[in-house]
Structure formats: C-alpha cells, structure tokens
Design a protein around this nucleic acid. Structure first.
Lengths: 221, 221
DNA sequence: CATCTGGACGGTACCCAGTACCATGCCAGG
DNA sequence: CCTGGCATGGTACTGGGTACCGTCCAGATG
C-alpha cells in the first residue's frame, strides 16, 4: 500500500488522539503506533510533541519573511499588511484543523504557551522590518515595536473571532482592523508638503496633559 | 545554623549553577543538593525547573491586578500606567538578578518562551481591565487589545533598554514612552463638548487611502 | 548481476523533569 | 508523655527527548 508521507500520517494521528483522549493522556508512542511508524521517526519529523500541533509554522514564518523581503521603502506598509494576511489566510485554509488546534490551545497550558511564543516570532520579524523601514535609529525603536505588536494583535483579534465563530467574514474584518490599526500610527509626523488634517481633544486640565505633551514633543524613548 | 527559607536558598543555588554550567547542564538534583534540601522540596517550592527563574511573577501579577482593581472609571488610564510601572520597578529593584535572568532568557529558548508566556498574562489582565473600562462591547474589543498590547510593549521596550545598559534613567524613559504610547489612542473619538485639534496627512492617492478611511469611519472590527 | 553507498527508518538504552506515595522527624497543644 | 498536623526527604514510576547503532532500500557504478 502506497502510504502518504509519515509526517502527514503523524499529524493526523496526533490530532485524532488528542481529540479522543486529550493531550497529556496521549504519549508519543501512541501517536507513532497509530501512524504506523517508530517513535524515532516522530522525533525526526517534529522537534517535540508540542510541535506536531503547529506543523506549518516554520513554512508560514518563511512566507512572511519572503513577503517582507520583497518590498521597497515605498510599499513597506502594504508588505506588512500582506504578510499578516498570509498568516490569517493560512489559518482560514486549515479549516477544521485550525479549530481543533484552538480547542487544544484553550485547554492545554503548554500548547497555549507554545502558540504565544510562535506569535512572538512574527512580532520579531515585523519589528525588524518596520524598524529598518523607519531608519533603524533608536528614536524609532519604540514606534516600530508598537507597530509590530499592533499588527500582530489585530491579526490575533480577528483570527480569534473567526475561531470562536463570531464572524464569517474574517478577511473583511481583517482589512478593516488592519487599516484602523495602521492608521493609529499615521497621523503624527506628517510629510510637510502634503494635505493635512489633525485632531486633538481632551477633557483633562493643563497639568494632566503636560506629561503627554512632553511625550509627544520630546523623544518618546 | 539558622537557615534562610528553602525557597530562597533554592533560587540562589539555581541562579549560581545556571551561571556556572548553563541551564540544560544543571539538573534539579544539582540545585536541590547545593541548596541543601531534597529534590521533593524543590518541586514543592516551584512548579517546574523553569519557574525558579521567575520566582516573583505570581506576586507581581497579583500586585498588578490589585492596582487595577482599586481604580475608578475616571482614573483608569492612571491605574494602567501605575500598574505597568509596578512591573518595571520590580525588575529594577531586582538589580543583578534581573540581569542574570536576562542573560539566561537570551540564550535558552525554553526560558525565553516562558517569559513571553508570562508577559501574555499581563496583556490579558490589562485587556480585561481596559475592555471593561471601554464598556465591554465587541466594538471596543480591538481597541482594548491594542491598548493592552501597546502598554506591555512599551514597558518591555524600556525594560530591555535598561537590561542592555542602554539607559540609566529607565523610569524617566518609561514615563515618556507610556505617555507617548497611551496618547496614540487618545486622539480619536473626542468628547463632543471639549476643545479639539485633529491632524491627518498623507502622501498617498485616493484609492490607497480609501481602505484606511473605511477603517476609520466604520466599525474597526 | 554484484557491489557500494547514502539516506530513511526502527529499536534500544539512557538522561532527566515531573508526579505519586510513603516514611520520618519536628513541634505544637492536650 | 502522647498525638496530630506539617514540612521534609526518599523511592519508584511515567514519559519526553537524545544518542547511537543496525537494517533496509534505492539508485549509481563496475
């Protein structure tokens, strides 16, 4: 019988067993046995038991890096949005697999932590890219970190809504969320020769506002 | 000889051994032996080998929650800033211990992941608080997530600068960074009966701007 | 066809984190 | 003196992860 690759069989077996008896109650031996391979083969295909839950992470991460690398100074923000969209679309294309993973990460602390650590890799990639885009100076490091955190957060927000079945138009929500999010950072430091529209309102008195003004006018850190 | 609590001796022993031979090369037996206690006692004091690196996390987390809980609708943003400042000050007060932890988390993946997962707990706490503060509606969920991510990111940024010895005035930088960060979210949705100042500039053409406008005017998600 | 070779695979043995359980010893309060 | 918690320590076990080795198969070469 012509078998599909061991890696795929292992993923199937793992998700099935995790669903049936739970994550901790399933041993790597169980997974290997159901997939019809040896235990050694499991650890050749995946670095750890946790990794079998996120089998495509490395590939998606690489696609993100590639999308960012193939952009110019002028299209940087578009590249970021596109790259984040790549991640969202990957989850959407997984369908039921993504939902199964979501169930697992909700209930198993080790898997949730693992997922958060994965997310951080996206944050790093976006930070490096955005920071370079902003010139790489220490005065733009905070802004770059905030932008990276914001786009990742916006993605996670929309993805989570889809995983919870709170929306059936995730990509439309993603577009809106991303434009709103990116826009947060757009309205300061205007290009001097362009049209401009500025809003600032406050209910605070002068003393309360002064620290914020200092943050705005001075080096934000 | 009147011994200090086993927990403290274990922390000391662990950091010393990790520094001497590295994290993976140190077993829990080694730590327990140097601390002069049994292996069982180690796992009574800490849930895992990793946890000994972040011994005060639970306490700091609780302090943060307490600071947030003791605030009113009017002082919510102040409470958030104060709560984040609590975390920063805790690290600063640790001194050399925080630097040793930083060295470890830079070089040991498992510890870095663990630290990121801890950070996520702060994010959650701030998100819940801010979301409540904004009314708890689904239309403010994204904004609350972004604000929570932003304040945590700003904190991490300043903390990391201090850990890398790039600043010797971390708290001043923190104040500036926080006011700049919080201010990102302040300039939309103005109270209608207050003074207002609005800025918007762009170098883009109309088609490029339309998605952003939709995000601004419609429901951001 | 015989031989060589490299890579995938399986099995075995080992290390160590984490858990469960039990025995001991100490220190109250009766 | 006894006794009932309670912290501690020891022992044994499970299971993830690593190292190593032998085997098998495919394709290249003579």
């Amino acid at each position: 019988m012509a078998q599909r690759p061991a890696r795929e069989r292992l993923i199937e077996a793992a998700f099935a067993l995790f669903e049936e008896r739970g994550y901790e109650q399933t041993t790597v031996d169980d997974i290997a046995e159901r997939a019809g391979v040896g235990r050694t083969t499991f650890f050749r295909a995946f670095r750890s038991k946790e990794e079998v839950i996120f089998p495509d992470h490395d590939a998606v991460m690489q696609a993100v890096s590639a999308r960012l690398a193939g952009s110019t100074q002028q299209t940087a923000l578009l590249a970021v949005t596109d790259a984040v969209r790549l991640v969202l679309r990957h989850y959407l294309s997984e369908g039921e697999l993504a939902l199964a993973r979501y169930r697992l990460t909700r209930s198993v602390t080790a898997l949730r932590d693992r997922e958060i650590a994965s997310t951080q890799q996206y944050h790093r990639a976006f930070y490096n890219f955005i920071h370079d885009w902003l010139g790489g100076g220490s005065d733009t490091a905070l802004k770059a970190e905030l932008m990276a955190a914001a786009v990742v957060t916006a993605h996670n927000h929309v993805l989570r809504r889809w995983l919870r079945r709170q929306t059936d138009r995730p990509e439309a929500e993603f577009d809106a969320a991303m434009s709103w999010t990116v826009n947060l950072f757009n309205e300061r430091e205007p290009d001097r020769d362009e049209a401009a529209l500025v809003v600032f309102r406050t209910t605070k008195d002068l003393d309360t506002v002064i620290p914020a003004l200092r943050g705005l006018l001075g080096n934000p850190g």
